[in-house]
């Protein structure tokens, strides 16, 4: 869902509050160029998404839903006052520039690595996500690219989506606790 042509930040916020806030584009006031990015919980903690595979269904191609804490999908500022659905991760971006010099921001994710447990590994290509409430970042799967494109947008806007991650469970792996890290990158020239 997109709100377009709103000139004032305050007005945008007022309208957004009445709309589903899980995924949204909000036009914000132009100003000094700046970008901002949040993935998961606000603050200084890196959010963790966990996947618990059951012995009875391991490797049977039935996706395993990830779980995370409430903070990972919590509200974001005045424009996104409603928390994401349970176990979703909020991805929020803002890119601002002056009216005279509009810019284009891009969000990418590095899913080229693996989750590892000792000498065993699960590639991030074994995971996908379901985006709830909007299409700004469409549902999709990690491609294994170090710079997988997720979103391109013009200034000055805020965009936020809620994502539920899934382990695709198509292959059997040795037992263990596998850990890995994604890096999201927001850039603007």
């Amino acid at each position: 869902m997109t709100i377009r042509g709103l000139a004032g930040y305050g007005l945008a916020a007022a309208l957004a509050a009445a709309l589903p806030a899980s995924a949204l584009t909000v036009v914000v006031a132009d100003g000094t160029p700046e970008i901002a990015l949040r993935v998961g919980a606000p603050g200084g903690t890196i959010s963790l998404v966990t996947f618990a595979v059951a012995a009875a269904t391991a490797g049977n191609s039935t996706p395993v839903l990830g779980t995370t804490n409430v903070a990972a999908g919590s509200s974001q500022g005045a424009n996104f006052p409603t928390a994401c659905p349970a176990n979703n991760v909020r991805v929020w971006t803002r890119a601002r520039s002056t009216l005279a010099t509009p810019r284009v921001a891009t969000l990418t994710v590095n899913g080229s690595g693996n989750l590892t447990s000792g000498g065993n590994s699960i590639p991030f290509t074994n995971f996908d996500w379901i985006t709830s409430g909007g299409t700004e970042i469409a549902s999709g799967a990690f491609s294994g690219s170090p710079s997988q494109a997720l979103l391109t947008f013009n200034t000055s806007r805020e965009i936020s989506v809620c994502k539920r991650f899934r382990f695709l469970n198509t292959t059997v792996y040795p037992s263990g606790t596998y850990n890995g890290q994604l890096i999201y990158t927001l850039q603007m020239p």
């Binding site: 000094t32 160029p33 700046e34 970008i35 901002a36 990015l37 949040r38 993935v39 998961g40 919980a41 606000p42 603050g43 200084g44 890196i46 959010s47 963790l48 998404v49 966990t50 996947f51 618990a52 595979v53 059951a54 012995a55 009875a56 391991a58 990830g66 974001q76 991760v89 929020w92 803002r94 890119a95 921001a105 989750l115 447990s117 699960i122 991030f124 995971f127 991650f165 382990f167 792996y173 040795p174 037992s175 263990g176 606790t177 596998y178 850990n179 890995g180 890290q181 994604l182 890096i183 999201y184 990158t185 927001l186 850039q187 603007m188 020239p189």
Partner: peptide, 26 residues
């Protein structure tokens, strides 16, 4: 602190997200 911000061109901000899979022996 999240959200991370950058106000100097060229602009770039990273954010990380951890995954963990608990895989049973079966």
């Amino acid at each position: 602190e999240q959200p991370g911000t950058d106000a100097t061109a060229p602009f770039l901000v990273n954010a990380r997200l951890n995954f963990r899979v608990t895989y049973p022996r079966f």
